[in-house]
Design a protein around this nucleic acid. Sequence first.
DNA 1: TTTAAATACGATAATTTTAGTCGTATTTAT
DNA 2: ATAAATACGACTAAAATTATCGTATTTAAA
Lengths: 132, 132
Amino acid sequence: MLKLTRKVEYALIALRHMQTLKPRKLTSAKEIAEAYGLPQQLLAKTLQQMARDSIIEAVQGPSGGYRIMSDLDKISLKDFFEKLEGPLGIMDCYFDSDCIQLGACNIRTPIQRINENMREMFSKMSLREVTQ
Amino acid sequence: MLKLTRKVEYALIALRHMQTLKPRKLTSAKEIAEAYGLPQQLLAKTLQQMARDSIIEAVQGPSGGYRIMSDLDKISLKDFFEKLEGPLGIMDCYFDSDCIQLGACNIRTPIQRINENMREMFSKMSLREVTQ
DNA sequence: TTTAAATACGATAATTTTAGTCGTATTTAT
DNA sequence: ATAAATACGACTAAAATTATCGTATTTAAA
């Protein structure tokens, strides 16, 4: 099924929400969570991670919150996904070495080919294309 | 991470193995499981499913087994993945209707755009490209 | 300068999904 | 008849994901 996690889903919802606001206007995790019925704490973690990755900016204290920081045009979906979820690929034999297979595996190369195609595809799409 | 399940992994290993054999030669779940250190019963289920989908052919009885049936050039990766795992997409909001979101969701359309791109990409790759 | 509302984040619990096993039936070559 | 294979539903185990808890820190504003 090739699915991404909720984290990405919440991140996209939040970004899309922020884009509807006036530039530099802050919005809080609570606000977004209530608006879309998301679990606030989990959403908050996602927002915190995006802040660490400089996709958004966090402002602490009361009347603090988050706002978009980067130019979303300049962030590829590949980078976005990988920042939130780690390396992109249909199977992990590409990066993790402790595969069950010792040397018997016969699909490593073809899998890598698929993975490269996927990465290329998501490299060509910008985050803005998705959030706008 | 966008990962596929073991089912697909085992299916690919099995197909690739069959391709190394003489055409029409049968191989059993046991044989493949032992050769690659896979759980035999689970592999068998995957083979059975591929047989139901007419990708391979099953022959019962002792000295029975499986062999490739379809022209793998004619099966797209999209069809292959969807046969084994159901609809292809990075999130299921496309097909499943019981989403948490009532009408508040703001990312359905962009998600569908990504999903379409993915399906298109996998439509263009044949199963043979991967197993050969 | 106290309070309250927000972010920050590690730890843990709950849930869901995936992976694997078991048991039994059926088929069929020998 | 027997044995080796496929077929498959039911169940268990393990892993991954999702969500919550608890606490610390920051800081605007009363």
